[in-house]
Design a protein around this nucleic acid. Structure first.
Lengths: 249, 249
DNA sequence: CGTATCCGATACGCATCCGTATCGTAGACG
DNA sequence: CGTCTACGATACGGATGCGTATCGGATACG
């Protein structure tokens, strides 16, 4: 097993041809060619994982899809878990970047009613707030990028993490960061409406993600055209229900 | 492949020793011994599926757990999918029976406040209704039987059904019936409070199940002691938020 | 108590997928 | 333009899990 890329801090020894090489040259072997290969394999892995599931995916199929043989694969990754880890890292980074960008959008733009988000000192209540929350939820859902099937993988990995906690550190870390993002997302959105949460933001985030995930699954099973239909209908009411007009604190 | 149990309507020919056998005697071969074996295998399958996942489970391990060899397995089931189907059938029947029994309980007993569920002609509102809903949710959650890990399998199968719809008819059928149960469950509970839903009951059921499932997963990952903590906190507010005092119709 | 049949155990071949070891070549570099 | 290394292709051995075919003991029945 020779992997020239990952685990710089491991015991892997890189073969250096030259005579004198400084110690800090022990950097990962980055060549443009290698980077391109890794990206293509990761792209293929994302597709195959989404279609077949993490367990059902084979290294062979990933390689076929990427246009490589297994030799290339094992030259770049240790095994299937290793690609999975790299993929989680990459996709998570992309998702967070996306969310951050769109959070700014949501926060920065005026409300659909044209009067700005926060309605006054006491905070919005009732149908008004529900409408604005609906618009916010709408924007967030619309902003989530990429293949809906990836949502399945997310759930699948969560289940896997329960069964094999040790083998899932990478996922659990990424998941914790993701959850933190969603939480602040919700808190800031709620604050913009002049309201405050009555339960922990993480709890709301968990519930919201659960609703969205199942919304996607339901739509995919029933052949519905809009994967977020259920979430769209329920989420605003849910978030409104676990918040109240902010007390002047 | 010789299976003397399932698929009575298939082309399987049963070996009858006697000379003259009436056509309607072509019933499944039920012996007490065979039934017991099937049950033991199903019990083992439930454990293994829950621990390893449907994909990760092997026929070998199921047999080991049941105290049989693979010979016994293939004498009773066609393959892994076949046990899975039988297991879904059995567990679903049990769950529905459980729910029905406890629905009667919830409906029949007086409210914790002692004044009966429905508060009056206009229906309950605000904190009152929330409190009663909390009690209802509490009872339902407490009544769901069995291993929490089975909730993972439920989710897993849902995902599998998306990827292999043809191979998942049994699950999809059971799931549709389950969803219908939950829906009437919610509708009746809401009606008892003198309220009515503002969205489709199936939608509420989907959202609720999504919340419960993720609640369980969150707790299992974080090592929380109460698998339903998140659901308990969020569900009453959610259901309240998608309902309103009933109009005198 | 003897016999026929049911049913689980044993043994086998097969397919799939994995990970490694080796090879050949394209591309970097002097 | 020649050399050498990086990197992907090829080839191999091995493990695992599946499904079938056959065997032998338990059980029901006369």
């Amino acid at each position: 097993m020779r992997i020239g890329y990952v685990n710089v801090s491991s015991t892997t020894v890189y073969p250096f041809g030259g005579s004198a090489v400084s110690v800090e040259a022990r950097e990962p072997v980055r060549s443009a060619r290698r980077d391109a290969t890794r990206e293509r394999v990761l792209d293929a892995a994302r597709e195959v994982f989404a279609e077949r599931g993490v367990f059902g995916a084979t290294v062979e199929e990933i390689c076929d899809r990427a246009g490589f043989t297994r030799g290339a694969f094992y030259s770049n990754f240790a095994d299937k878990d290793d690609v999975l880890e790299a993929l989680i890292e990459r996709e998570h980074a992309r998702l967070v970047a996306y969310l951050d960008a769109h959070l700014d959008l949501v926060v920065g733009e005026p409300a659909p009613s044209g009067a700005g988000w926060a309605g006054g000192q006491g905070g919005l209540d009732g149908p008004e707030a529900a409408g604005l929350l609906g618009a916010m939820v709408e924007r967030i859902l619309a902003s989530v990028p990429g293949d809906r099937l990836l949502s399945l993988v997310q759930t699948e990995l969560e289940i896997h993490a329960i069964r094999q906690p040790a083998a899932s550190r990478a996922f659990l870390d990424a998941d914790a960061r993701f959850r933190a993002r969603i939480s602040t997302f919700i808190e800031r959105g709620i604050a913009l409406l002049g309201r405050e949460l009555t339960v922990d933001a993480g709890t709301v985030a968990d519930a919201a993600v659960g609703v969205v995930e199942r919304s996607v699954r339901r739509a995919l099973i029933s052949g519905g055209d809009d994967p977020d239909a259920m979430a769209r209908e329920v989420l605003p009411a849910l978030i409104l229900a676990v918040s109240r007009p902010a007390t002047a604190d």
